[in-house]
Each structure stands twice: as C-alpha cells, then as structure tokens.
C-alpha cells in the first residue's frame, strides 16, 4: 500500500503530482513525495524507472508537464521551483551534482569553489565595476570566500590539491570536489545524482561519512543511488520508483522488506515463472 503523501511541517522539498511526458512516453506519472528537513532522502529504483528525470525536473533542467515542486523555507513562503529558470533554482537554495561529473577541468580546485560562490561575491563587487576600480568591499568578501572554500576542501580531504586543475584530479577526488562545489553555494537542499558511481568500497565509505557530515551541518540531502549499501546505511527515508510510479516511501528497513520493491528489482517473478 502506498501511504498518502506526507504533509509535514518539517518539509523542505515537496513534489506533488509530478508528471513528465516525452512525446508519447510518460517517464514520470503523478509522483508525489516529500523530503524532510535535516534528513537524507534516497530516490531509488531499477534502471529506467525515471529517477534522473525526476531529478532534472527538481533541479530545473526539465520543465515538468504537470504537477508542482516546492522548496520550503522555515518561516517563509515556499518557492515554486517548477516555474523558475534554472539558475534561479540554485539561488533559491538547491544545489546539485551530476551523474557524469561536470567540473571546470581547466580551473583549479580552489577556483571551482570560488565560481560556486559567484552570486555572493558578485554582490560584493557592485556588479564588477566597483571591483575593477578597487573601490569596494570585495577583498574582504573574497577572503571569506576563500575561507569557505578552504573549509570544504578540508572536509573533502582535497586541501593538498587546492591549486591543481580539477581535470587532473583522480576520479574519486573529482566526485568529492563536485560535492564541495555544490556545498559552496550554501544550499538548504543538496541533490546528488549517483555520487557513489565508480567509487571503490573505501571511497564509498568516505562518501557516506561526508554526506553524514553535511547532514550534521544542517543541509538536507536528496540522493539518487545504485549502491544499496550506501543507501541503506545513511538514508533516513527511501523513495522507490518503478516505471515512473511511486511504489514505496518509507524508512530503509521497511522498504527493504517491501514485496513490491523486491519484485521491481528482481523482476515480476510470480505468475510468469509459474506459467
């Protein structure tokens, strides 16, 4: 049984009736779920279940065919993400990483993290003009930005590689740097698209620790992941999709035992095999 969507005071992301069609194909069908403040919510499902489509709708890379996506702020009106252009979504407090890493390879790790703080720095420069003339609060703002970057480099154990070009870092380090870059935008919700893909078990453990640290600092996390070890260990809530529909939304322990989830992952066994 699917419980009705949880309406909760502590909600940070609310997805209501989300539908996404590509021509005749309905990739996501009437999906409703919520992510709570201070939690790690995992979005899982077999290949082609529509996870990345949901993700792209939330982060503004697709415009949904129907439904609403809202980002809630404590003590303020929610933001309607489905109406905002892509770059405004990031400014509303939602940061993302990409399944295939998208760093700025020719810029150093530090520069990558400073680009992420563009909007805050830009405000301090008085739209670039003041800073060219050396008239503004820019130097202090930049020192603070470098300090923030240094903190996240430390948290992702990349401090030694701060002045190396991002494209020359090993794969696992690039993954961590992308998370650090997303965190430098000071998001309230961090969306990760398969952060453990291609990592070895030790790196996966490090990643899990990093995500728990981020949650501990007050940023909620929504993640798509295939590595069930990571998902079950760190998630507070697991949302399972199959063929664009919600089939389970509960704690990891309950989801693991849910027959529909097992069926979706192992194939619709039952009557087919009997026949």
């Amino acid at each position: 049984m699917i419980s009705p969507p949880r309406i909760h005071r502590n909600m940070i992301l609310e997805v209501a009736g989300l539908t996404m069609r590509f021509g005749g194909l309905t990739a996501v069908d009437q999906l409703s779920f919520a992510a709570l403040h201070g939690e790690i919510t995992a979005l899982i499902g077999p290949n082609g279940a529509g996870k990345t489509t949901v993700f792209n709708c939330i982060t503004g890379f697709y415009r949904p065919s129907a439904g609403a996506i809202r980002l809630h702020h404590p003590g303020a009106l929610p933001t309607d993400l489905h109406r905002l252009p892509g770059y405004r979504i990031a400014r509303a407090g939602l940061a993302r990483t990409f399944q295939n890493i998208r760093l700025f390879p020719g810029m150093t790790a530090l520069e990558n993290l400073l680009v992420a703080q563009h909007n805050r720095l830009m405000a301090a420069t008085g739209w670039g003009i003041g800073a060219v003339l050396g008239l503004s609060r820019y130097p202090r703002a930049e020192r603070e930005a470098v300090e923030t970057a240094r903190r996240w480099l430390q948290a992702t154990t990349l401090l030694d590689r701060a002045d190396d070009p991002a494209g020359a870092l090993p794969y696992g380090a690039q993954r961590r740097l992308e998370i650090a870059r997303a965190m430098c935008t000071s998001p309230t919700l961090l969306c990760l698209d398969e952060p453990a893909a291609g990592l070895n078990p030790r790196e996966s453990d490090d990643l899990a620790r990093l995500l728990l640290l981020i949650r501990g600092q007050g940023t909620s996390i929504l993640l798509i992941e295939h590595d069930m070890g990571v998902v079950m260990r760190i998630s507070d809530r697991v949302v399972v999709l199959d063929h664009g529909r919600l089939i389970a939304d509960d704690t990891p322990a309950v989801v693991r035992a849910e027959p529909r989830v097992i069926a979706a992952y192992l194939g619709e066994g039952g009557e087919d095999e009997a026949a």
């Binding site: 770059y87 680009v115 830009m122």
Partner: peptide
C-alpha cells in the same frame, strides 16, 4: 574577480554554471 571567473567557467562548462546559480 567573480565576473572573469564566471566567464572562464562558462567556457569550461555552461550547464554546470547554470546549476551553480550563475
């Protein structure tokens, strides 16, 4: 400065720029 870094970031990856709120 941020504007110049944003230009270079744009040259490197436009989609990532958008995801960072630029």
């Amino acid at each position: 400065q941020p504007l110049g870094r944003a230009w270079e970031a744009l040259r490197e990856d436009e989609i990532a720029c958008r995801a960072l709120g630029i």
